[in-house]
Amino acid sequence: MEQYYNKLMECVLEGEEEEAVEITRAEIEGGTDPLDIVQKCLVPILDDVGDKFSKLEIFLPDLIMSADVAKAVKDEIRAHLLSSSNGSESSGKVVIGTVQGDVHDIGKNIVATLLEVNGYEVIDLGNDVAPYTFIETAKREKVDIIALSSLLTTSMPYMVDVLKTLDGLGIRDQYKVIVGGGPVSAEWAESIGADGYSNDANEAVELCRKMMAERKAG
């Protein structure tokens, strides 16, 4: 497993998707429990990658590349689990975007990428997204979490619009709504009735974990 770990690490950092899938298949066929691969290899490797990014030893394109490799490895593992009818689910489904009138997307991209790295299925609507588009997508794709990013005090009110519209349509309790971005604060998030807020991308992953736990409990 140690050899596999090192090889996988290399693949994740170099963006070698095909090789990662191949060595994973071989490892599973060699008898390693697929869940062990996730817990003991993929998760720590991705933590390490996240850590490297927070020290700027690697950059956003590397992070995106790693996310792609991780996704391919997860798909491979899922296929094996399904065939052994063990079942495995994604961490959760998130629709994310920067709200209307606002093109600041760097923070949102980092959050989306780290969520993907951590096994979430992420639908990224990009920037300048109208309130109703979030809701339409959430309904169509049956997401768990609606994640809104805003960097402008004058685009923050569109977050309120999303919540008000969900309320008006009577579907507010079907989704967790989380918010973030430069001027957004925990107090503000609470005051508008959002379910969660985080200050940075690592915390956003933690937050989503909490949201999913609450959903399962509730």
């Binding site: 009138g101 606002d102 005090t153 004058t154 685009s155």
Partner: peptide, 21 residues
């Protein structure tokens, strides 16, 4: 600077409010 509020309201960008701002 940017207005945090105007006429006692929180204005929205790319809406008629932007003209008032």
């Amino acid at each position: 600077c940017n207005f945090f509020t105007t006429h006692g309201r929180t204005p929205k960008t790319r809406s008629p409010w932007e003209v008032l701002l």
